[in-house]
Every structure is written in structure tokens, then in C-alpha cells.
Design a protein around this nucleic acid. Structure first.
Lengths: 130, 130
DNA sequence: CGCAATATTGACGTTTACGTTAGCGTAATG
DNA sequence: CATTACGCTAACGTAAACGTCAATATTGCG
């Protein structure tokens, strides 16, 4: 049962990160867990954010870029001007992500082709050896 | 006219990187340009490799991972054992790239949804303001 | 109660991927 | 022929993203 509040240790086990990593993310204001005295307690919201952080990292976004992206998922009582800026930022990120996916699709096709060549080579040599 | 041999300066202009970057990649054995005396000369092959390097970076692969990937594109007179290893490495990379693309597709859908919410908010406030 | 497990803050260390500066050689240009 | 442009190596510097270690609570268990 995944309860609502998790200790730092539970978070580490769940997401395969170290305590240092979570504290570091907090220092960079990517996370803001509650406190029980001095101990951190992570909520469902924190876990959602961490998922987004780790996902962003896998795509090569810097923590600072990820921090900005996270703002998008935290649209509260922002000023109109700020909301427009947030929106523009989101659009730019979206465009970049789509471009990356297209490129990734190409890269996948390339690699598959290369692997086909390697496999042909392997089959050849097997025949010779056989 | 893109000639066959390019100086480091031409490479930098073409790929928007610094000389330091190209020398660094060479030191890490990702590139191995020819020499005219002490001066580097980059061939078509070097340019193809650099494209792959820059592409890999955009997907968050480390230079070391990219170096291994590049071996795939350089299948020469390898030993049978080495060829099999190369192939396995390629398969793993391919699987990871496919997984990343799927995740990226999800992330894109997520972000689009969020942007829709933001846009709805913007429209609302505009109506109120109007 | 004692002790291991888990947590904290701080501070310094490490790796990756280059940036920057220094000091030198070569080449073309006004 | 001096200067400007371009290139080289070597070496030190740096930002990002943590790792590691020390010193100190707190908490649960036998």
C-alpha cells in the first residue's frame, strides 16, 4: 500500500534515487516536501513532481529547464502576464519535445538499419564457419 | 560548395560548436580527423560521426555511451566475438531509444493537456476582463 | 536502557563536458 | 614586413549534478 506521506527513505526505494539527490532537488526548488520537525515528508504531489523531474532528465533537460516546466503543472493564482509567459514557455518546450521525438524516430530507423547490416554479417560468417 | 576536407573552423561554423569541443571529442576518441602537419582535416566520415554525436547528446546520452554507439557504425574487420558484443550493445541501445520515444510521446500528450488547461484559463480571464 | 537504523545539516570532493588563457607556429594580406 | 587570422598544445578554471564524510538528532527494538 502506497500511503500518502512518504519518508525520504521510502522515496529513495520507490524512485531509485539517493537522499542526497532529493535534498539537492529541494535546494534547487524542484521539490518542497512538508516537514515533521526536521524530517521531510513527501506527498502525492511531490511524487508526481519527482516523476516529471526524472522523466525530464532522461530527455537531456537541465534541472533549471525542468524547474520551469514544473511551473506549468502548478498553475495557481498567477498574474495574467505571468500566465501568458508560462504558456509561451510551455509551447516552446512542447515544440522542442516534438522535434526531439521526430529526430529520435529517425535515429531509431538508422540504428535498426545498421543492426540489420551487422546481422547480415553475422549470418554470413556463421555460414562460412559452418 | 561543401568540399570533402574541412578545417576545424569550417566544422565549427557548420555544426555550431567550438574548436575546443571538437578537440575534446577527439581526445575522447569520438573523432579522429586526418592531419595536414599539425592541422586537423575533417572528412565526410568525421562529419557523419559528429552528427551522430550531437544527436546523441540531445537525447541525454553521455559521450561514453555515444562512443560505444559509434562503434556500431564502424563495423570493420572485427572478431566474431567482438561483432556479437557490438550487436548486443546495439540491441540494448535500440530498446532504450524506443522506450524513450514512447515515454516522450506520453510526455508530449501530458504537456499538451496542461497547455489546454492554461489556455482555458487565459480565455476565461479574457472574458472577465472584456 | 543501549544500540542499530534512519534522519538531519554542512562542507568538501568528484565527474562530465567543456571554457578560458597562455604561449607558440604558420599563412595570407595590406 | 608587420599585423591579423587561424591553428596548435598544455594547463588551469568552471558549472551542473550529485557523492561522500562528519557530526548530530530521533526512533524503534530486544
Amino acid at each position: 500500500m502506497t500511503h500518502d506521506l512518504m519518508t525520504i527513505g521510502e522515496m529513495c526505494a520507490t524512485f531509485d534515487v539517493t537522499p542526497r539527490t532529493l535534498r539537492f532537488y529541494e535546494s534547487r526548488e524542484l521539490l518542497a516536501p512538508m516537514r515533521d520537525g526536521s524530517k521531510r515528508l513527501f506527498t502525492r504531489r511531490d511524487r508526481a513532481r519527482l516523476k516529471l523531474i526524472l522523466r525530464g532528465k532522461r530527455f537531456g533537460f537541465s534541472l533549471e529547464e525542468i524547474r520551469q516546466l514544473l511551473e506549468l503543472y502548478e498553475v495557481g493564482d498567477q498574474q495574467m502576464t505571468q500566465l501568458v509567459k508560462t504558456h509561451e514557455l510551455g509551447i516552446r518546450h512542447l515544440d522542442e519535445m516534438v522535434a526531439r521525438r521526430d529526430e529520435l524516430t529517425l535515429a531509431i530507423a538508422d540504428l535498426r538499419e545498421q543492426l540489420d547490416l551487422v546481422e547480415a554479417l553475422l549470418t554470413d560468417r556463421q555460414k562460412v564457419a559452418g
